[in-house]
């Protein structure tokens, strides 16, 4: 599996676990958990500088942009225009062209606004961004986003921060089967088995934030997610056995010496 790399646009990764940097109690924990996850790509949000706190330490003092691929997101954007503005600023800030587009529909569900997401994706692809796009677990929309030129499609497993696992594993599989770009399960992963399940279904990667940041032991959960992603990926590549309705003996049924 050493040559089993994840290719996203012009980037290539050994890790299939993408992490978020939100919700941590402090920057040092963010750093330690990101290392424990052995992630190579980490999402960040774009927000106003607090003018009265100039010189205060920043997330990127702990998460070295030379060591990690920084993936600016558009979290909190509810229309295409704000999302495009946000990522133009992110690109100017750090030169980052690989971005996570998410345009949300409402504050209660945080479900994607697909119409605005598609509009933003068209503009960003036109402007040369490499767009990884958060969307519903809808195969038709996933195909549309791929046709626009997004470099990865990231269907939700369940609402952001809900930790409820994969609501619709069948759709994740269908999306994967039809896609030529990487499919990343983004949002909903609550624990290691959810991550393994997503990978077993064929997801090319998973993106996890809350499940690690809200674990009692963040680094231990990051280890668990790292291992689950590797195990799920290996199981997917290995090809699972068929499911049967009845038992199939594991020991030979001939050569019995009892009657």
């Amino acid at each position: 599996m050493s040559d089993d790399t994840l290719k996203v646009g012009s980037y290539e990764f050994r890790s299939r676990l993408i992490v978020g940097s939100g919700k941590y109690k402090d920057f040092e924990t963010t750093r330690l958990a990101t290392e424990a996850a052995e992630a190579e790509m980490i999402t960040v949000a774009v927000r106003r500088v607090n003018i009265t706190e100039a010189g205060k330490e920043n997330l990127l003092d702990y998460i070295d942009p030379k060591k990690y691929v920084i993936l600016p997101n558009t979290a909190g954007c509810f229309n295409a225009e704000d999302a495009v503005r946000t990522l133009r600023l992110a690109r100017e800030a750090g030169g980052w062209d690989l971005v996570k587009l998410e345009v949300l529909g409402d504050t209660e569900t945080l479900y994607p606004n697909v119409v605005e997401t598609i509009k933003a994706a068209e503009t960003l692809v036109d402007e040369g961004f490499q767009v990884m796009v958060y969307t519903n677990d809808d195969p038709i929309v996933a195909t549309r986003l791929e046709e626009i030129g997004c470099v990865a499609v990231m269907p939700l497993g369940n609402p952001i921060g809900s930790g409820r696992g994969l609501a619709n594993p069948f759709n994740i599989r269908v999306i994967k089967q039809r896609a030529k770009v990487p499919i990343v399960v983004d949002a909903g992963i609550g624990t290691a088995s959810d991550a393994a399940k997503a990978m077993e279904l064929g997801a090319d990667a998973v993106l996890i934030n809350t499940a690690i940041a809200e674990a009692r032991d963040e680094c231990l959960m990051a280890n668990a997610m790292r291992d689950a992603v590797r195990a799920g990926r290996a199981a997917y590549l290995a090809g699972r056995m068929p499911k049967r309705s009845f038992a199939s003996a594991s020991s030979p049924t001939d050569g019995y010496f009892w009657t």
């Binding site: 940097s21 939100g22 960040v44 949000a45 774009v46 920043n58 997330l59 600023l89 800030a93 921060g161």
Partner: peptide, 10 residues
Amino acid sequence: IEIVHMIGGG
């Protein structure tokens, strides 16, 4: 004028 930077986010 808007001045922005990167903060933690998912």
